[in-house]
């Protein structure tokens, strides 16, 4: 005997498939990442994946829950990939492990596991790392063709796992700050936007290489939209608000504020808009709520980027807005069938 409950038909979808499609949608971005920055990112993704699955299994075991169905749901993998993509590829192995383990154990399982976490686990992992190891988090690989020296894959592995660079190569020679970080530093030195953007690390829209990775995530995001895994509300409201606020500042003072497109294509804006903020567990459920949530996140992102102390603002914008989700949901309950005129 099975199928006690109607509907008795085969269900067309499953959590594991949805998460798998999201992972799939990350592939173009990752591929471009590898193209421009080398294969080191694959190492941290693999490392994070293994850590995530191991932590997930351990936590499920500790919580006395069935392990197999939850490991198969792909949600831990997604957390791992998102976290690995938001930290520097050359980060030492223990950072990836600590961040991922914290994300899965504390921010996911201590809150009740899949579906019950109020905060985006990947962003919690990121926040923990950037607060605990701020220096490590600023050493990003220099894209191909820009650095004085380029590390071979073996050398990269050596650094990630052993912390050792080849003789006569310094860390500063193979890494750099992110385009957003560089921009901020140079603006503090009273340089003008035009001058700064002439630097070799900037490409057509934003950072050399990283702008292309953003295109990859945009592509994946469009696939998610087309396959109806996410709705348009969050990406549109998020990118729209980012465009609007950065546009206003840019128009008012182009010498000190970069263009909206720069904001769209730098940092984690694209992956944030399509992959991080859209995490269903930690975002509002109503359409109006999604718009408010994403718009506020866009605003906070811009404020942190333009006026804050951190290089990028997606993680903190996401976490801050995660707190507001229950409230937003409660306030934006739509009217039900037949009650449209009488109730708001």
């Amino acid at each position: 005997m099975s199928a006690f409950f109607a509907p008795f038909l085969n269900k067309p979808d499953s959590v594991s498939q949805i998460m798998f499609k999201v992972l799939l949608a990350l592939i173009p971005g990752i591929a471009l990442y590898v193209w421009y920055f080398g294969p080191a990112i694959l190492v941290s993704i693999t490392l994070a994946s293994i850590t995530a699955l191991a932590t997930e299994a351990a936590m499920l075991k500790l919580r006395d829950r069935p392990i197999a169905p939850f490991l198969k749901d792909n949600s831990a993998l997604l957390t791992a990939w998102l976290l690995a993509l938001s930290i520097p590829p050359l980060a030492p192995w223990w950072m990836v492990v600590v961040g991922t383990a914290f994300a899965i154990s504390v921010s996911k399982h201590l809150y009740g596991g899949l579906g019950n976490n109020p905060f985006n686990p990947a962003m919690i992992g990121y926040a923990v790392l950037i607060i605990s190891f701020p220096v490590h988090m600023t050493h990003w690989i220099t894209p191909h063709g820009l650095g004085q020296v380029e590390l071979s894959f073996i050398d990269q592995l050596g650094y990630i796992f052993g912390g050792a660079l080849p003789p006569n190569v310094t860390l500063d020679a193979v890494t750099m700050a992110t385009p957003l970080d560089t921009l901020k530093t140079h603006l503090h030195l009273d340089e003008h936007v035009n001058q700064i953007l002439d630097m070799p690390i900037y490409g057509r829209l934003a950072g050399q290489g990283s702008e292309m990775v953003a295109w990859g995530f945009l592509l994946g995001g469009l696939y998610l939209l087309a396959s109806r895994i996410i709705s348009w509300h969050i990406p549109v409201a998020y990118l729209g608000t980012l465009l609007l606020t950065s546009g206003i500042f840019h128009l008012a003072d182009p010498a000190h504020y970069v263009t909206p497109l720069f904001h769209w294509f730098s940092g984690a804006a694209m992956i944030g808009a399509f992959f991080i903020l859209t995490d269903p567990v930690t975002s509002p459920t109503t359409q109006k709520g999604k718009l408010i949530f994403a718009a506020m996140a866009g605003l906070i992102t811009y404020l942190i980027r333009a006026f804050g102390g951190f290089p990028d603002g997606i993680a903190f914008a996401t976490l801050l807005m995660n707190i507001c989700v229950p409230l937003i949901d409660a306030w934006t309950q739509p009217p039900v069938f037949g009650n449209k005129e009488t109730k708001p």
Binding site: S2, L114, G115
Partner: peptide, 15 residues
């Protein structure tokens, strides 16, 4: 009518 797979927690996907 194959038996339904085991249920997982709600992920608030709002389908």
């Amino acid at each position: 009518f194959p038996p339904a797979p085991p249920a997982l927690p709600c992920i608030r996907c709002t389908r």
